[in-house]
């Protein structure tokens, strides 16, 4: 008898195989991989809601309101139109602040990655800016420029800028010189080398920087509104906090969180799958 015997069947690599070749017959009672994934996700969400409900039963309503009280507060906000007005104000600040931070970060990060001289000159600035708490930027800019929309957007942008710059900078430094040498040998000019060889390589970093930057930006936006604006979700949180109205505080927080999650899922995931379709999946 053989000590070790194997019978292995290997399916062809996806590039060669026809789409239905790899699929196996599945019994009728078995859920597809996709629906099992959905079930697991839903189970996670339902459990979270259940734990919240249990907590709200144990604790008094003015400390931890239950899902129903929060939903009622939310519905009232929708009906009165308050929700939309304040939400749009907040979103406008986030979008402008973020775009400003992103464009600044990409320009400075790229310049630092490509030129040693610029890097030596600016990297201290970026490091210092990264260390300063966003709240300090906010206060200083409010004092310098007054409590207005421009100063708010600027403070938001300044808060997001250093983290984005550093990510892009690292991305440009990690660009594969061997690929650039290849392009040079084949007489590919400088602009095309930048667009077709450098940019695709830093795209993952720009995307990661954007996600990270957006996380910083939307958090500081709420604080900026709390400190110096009389509209927006931050203002609403502050207002209801002063009245100790917990269902309203929860309603605004949850709504905002859901919107940001949707942005992550609908926008970033889409961009990612579109930009990185060439990348093989990580197998750990």
């Amino acid at each position: 008898m053989a000590f070790l015997s194997t019978k292995i069947k290997v399916n062809h690599a996806p590039a060669i195989a026809s789409p239905d070749e790899g699929a196996r017959k599945r019994p009728a009672w078995e859920l597809s991989e996709r629906s099992r994934f959905v079930v697991r996700k839903l189970l996670g969400i339902v459990t979270l809601l259940f734990l919240w409900w249990v907590g709200s039963v144990i604790l008094p309503e003015d400390i931890l309101p239950g899902p129903i009280a929060v939903a009622e507060a939310f519905a009232a906000n929708v009906r009165s139109g308050v929700l939309m007005t304040h939400f749009l104000d907040t979103m406008r600040r986030i979008v402008f602040g973020f775009l400003l931070a992103l464009s600044g970060g990409v320009v400075f990060g790229t310049a630092m990655g490509l030129s040693k001289k610029i890097e030596d000159f600016i990297d201290t600035w970026v490091m210092v800016a990264l260390t300063i708490p966003s709240l300090c930027f906010l206060i200083v800019i409010y004092i310098l420029m007054g409590l207005n929309e421009l100063s708010t957007v600027l403070a938001i942008a300044v808060s997001g800028f250093p983290a984005i710059t550093i990510n892009v900078w690292q991305g440009v430094k990690n660009v594969d010189n061997k690929l650039l040498a290849m392009a040079r040998v084949f007489n590919v000019g400088r602009p095309k080398r930048f667009l077709r060889v450098v940019i695709p390589q830093i795209m993952p970093y720009i995307l990661a920087a954007s996600r990270y930057g957006l996380g910083i930006v939307w958090k500081i936006t709420v604080v900026a509104e709390l400190l110096g604006r009389n509209t927006g979700i931050g203002f609403q949180l502050h207002y209801w906090f002063q009245l100790f109205n917990m269902p309203q505080v929860f309603a605004w927080t949850l709504f905002f969180t859901l919107v940001m999650l949707l942005i992550e899922l609908l926008i970033f995931k889409q961009i990612e799958s579109h930009v990185f379709h060439w990348r093989p999946a990580t197998k750990f």
């Binding site: 290849m182 392009a183 060889v197």
Partner: peptide, 23 residues
């Protein structure tokens, strides 16, 4: 000049034909 390196040095985000088209 045509250059063939020790490693393939293909651009990973381009299909085989587009890698050739690139040069």
């Amino acid at each position: 000049i045509g250059y063939i390196f020790q490693e393939p040095r293909l651009l990973p985000w381009l299909r085989a034909e587009d890698n050739i088209k690139f040069v």
